[in-house]
Design a protein around this nucleic acid. Structure first.
Length: 495
RNA sequence: GAGCCGUUAGCUCAGCCGGCAGAGCACCUGCCUUUUAAGCAGGGUGUCGCGCGUUCGAAUCGCGCACGGCUCACCA
């Protein structure tokens, strides 16, 4: 701890030392608190003028402002419920305690204030302090009171500072928690059972992504952090839980962008005896429920767009949508080379060695996704990019799958689940060939999952949704880092 | 992974055709008993991200590196 202190840090340590010399513990073990700031404010309801309450309140919080006027001082404290003004004066506190407060208590200190409540001349509810006690000394200055903390890097690395000084950031994370609660309410009310499945998995699966790899020493076993919950939740459907869901963290060892973080929160649910049409209806109903519950409206603003979440949402066949936006009929190009040429012909920038599935993905994300502002389900995807979805009856090329898009972002992905164990095995084998050909994101053969399927899985509709992206949408944030409390950053360089 | 932009006081930001490092808030000293971005008088507290180079002289110009942001690539 030989780090050089700034003048302000030295000043605060000096104040702390002076408190100790006065016999005051700057970090006491106990404190008295009878009201939150919000609760204290309510006590003044119905009182007129500057009349004070008979009741003495003990409130506690971080001192966010301090305006000294000689023998009297106004300031605000902030706790989790809000802000409250206090009034300190020699008259009410006595000279010794008042001067100690005035000289040794700094902005950012956690303090307790006790006294009756009254309104000032300007009508602001205020605690008339009879005593002010130190609850925890703050040894570093807070960011500036007016402009707050703007430096994005500091906001993410020291999120606690962001939360202290930027009220809108606080609200985003409160909203995020309410969104998750509303999702649980919705699913619980419909008989879904919330479960927990392994994060450390011997074989990763359920999505196309590169995994994080770890190792169990005692078992001498390589393990993967899950990239999805899918294959475990389906095992539970086999096991007879007809409606299950999980909300938790997935990990994907891929690039970081405004809508990608290496770990992100996912909701997946599976419903036996349902298909993707049932899931589509449930999805639009669920999102509408959450918006209504959390925001009180189905009409939201996202960036420059006004979005109406009212069901039913538009359904567009993927093939038809691609034709409309690009003029390319993917059915007319049954292999990668011909589709590649067609995309190049319209000026598309794609990898020459991409598979047909990757090319179709590129068409979706480059030409469709940015235009899908109002809630839209793209339906009926090619089988080669959907190795866990059931084929459409009468088609060997398409599966019963949809993705939901809102505000130009993919929000969710769902399908009628493939429950034919032999077909599933063939799909794994195809994926294995793709992996051997260099596609690191291809699915791996999961024998144990195939065994589960072979006992018979009911017809099932399944669903996955990124909670982070839904939160971006409902809080009107343009970066996933704004809705993740501690987004991933490189280590701070040694200075 | 590539391109562009950024990094100056605790915070928010000026300064950038090379010439003594600046403002507001915060902080320090003094005054002030109803203020609320309190006010008045005084005080600049700094490894100009790091390193190398050009130059009589670098926050400023050049090269390299680090971290961050945006765009692209990647991400079903």
């Amino acid at each position: 701890m030989s780090k050089r202190l700034t003048e302000q840090e030295e000043q605060r340590r000096l104040h702390m030392e002076q408190l100790r010399q006065a016999g005051i513990d700057p970090y006491p073990a106990r404190c008295t608190r009878t009201h939150t700031c919000a609760e204290a404010l309510q006590l003044l309801e119905g009182l007129d003028g500057e009349e004070a309450t008979a009741e003495i309140v003990h409130v506690a919080g971080r001192m966010m402002s301090k305006r000294v006027m000689g023998k009297a001082t106004f300031g605000h404290i902030q706790d989790g419920s809000g802000r409250l003004q206090f009034y300190a004066s020699v008259d009410n506190m006595g000279e010794e305690e008042y001067n100690r407060f005035r000289k040794l208590f700094d902005l950012g200190d956690i303090i307790g204030v006790a006294g009756p409540l009254f309104r000032t001349r300007t009508g602001e509810p205020t605690v008339r302090a009879q005593s002010i006690t130190m609850l925890a000394k703050s040894l570093r200055p807070l960011p500036e009171k007016w402009h707050g903390l703007k430096d994005v890097e500091l906001r993410y690395r020291q999120r606690y500072l962001d939360l202290i000084v930027n009220e809108d950031v606080r609200q985003v994370f409160i909203t995020r928690t309410r969104i998750v609660s509303a999702l649980r309410e919705f699913l619980d009310a419909r008989g879904f059972l919330e479960v927990e499945t392994p994060i450390l998995q011997p074989i990763y699966g359920g999505a196309a992504a590169r995994p994080f790899i770890t190792y169990h020493n005692e078992l001498e076993q390589q393990l993967y952090l899950r990239i999805s919950f899918e294959l475990y939740l389906k095992r539970l459907i086999v096991g007879g839980f007809d409606k299950v869901y999980e909300i938790g963290r997935d990990f994907r060892n891929e690039g970081i962008s405004f809508k990608h973080n290496p770990e992100f929160t996912q909701l997946e649910f599976y419903q036996a005896y349902a298909d993707y049409n049932d899931v589509m209806r449930l999805t639009e109903e669920m999102i509408a429920y959450v918006a209504q519950k959390v925001l009180g409206t189905l009409r939201i603003t996202y960036g420059e767009h006004e979005i109406d979440l009212t069901p039913p949402w538009r359904r567009r066949e993927l093939r038809q949508a691609i034709i409309e936006e690009t003029g390319i009929d993917i059915e007319a190009y049954p292999d990668a080379p011909s589709l590649y040429q067609a995309i190049r012909a319209i000026g598309g920038n794609v990898e020459p060695k991409a598979t047909r599935g990757k090319l179709i993905d590129a068409l979706i994300s480059n030409y469709l996704e940015p235009k899908l502002i109002q809630p839209t389900f793209l339906i009926d995807y090619p089988v080669e990019i959907s190795p866990l979805a059931k084929r459409k009856p009468g088609s060997d090329r398409l599966v019963e799958r949809f993705e939901g898009f809102i505000g130009g972002m993919e929000i969710c992905n769902a399908f009628t689940e493939l429950n034919d164990p032999d077909d599933q095995e063939q799909r794994f084998l195809e994926q294995g060939r793709a992996y051997d050909a260099g596609d690191e994101e291809a699915h791996r053969m999961d024998e144990d999952f195939l065994t589960a399927l072979s006992y018979g899985m009911p017809p099932t509709g399944g669903f996955g949704m990124g909670i982070d992206r839904l939160t971006m949408l409902l809080t009107n944030r343009d970066s996933i880092r704004e809705v993740i409390l501690f987004p991933h950053l490189r280590p701070r360089p040694a200075s």
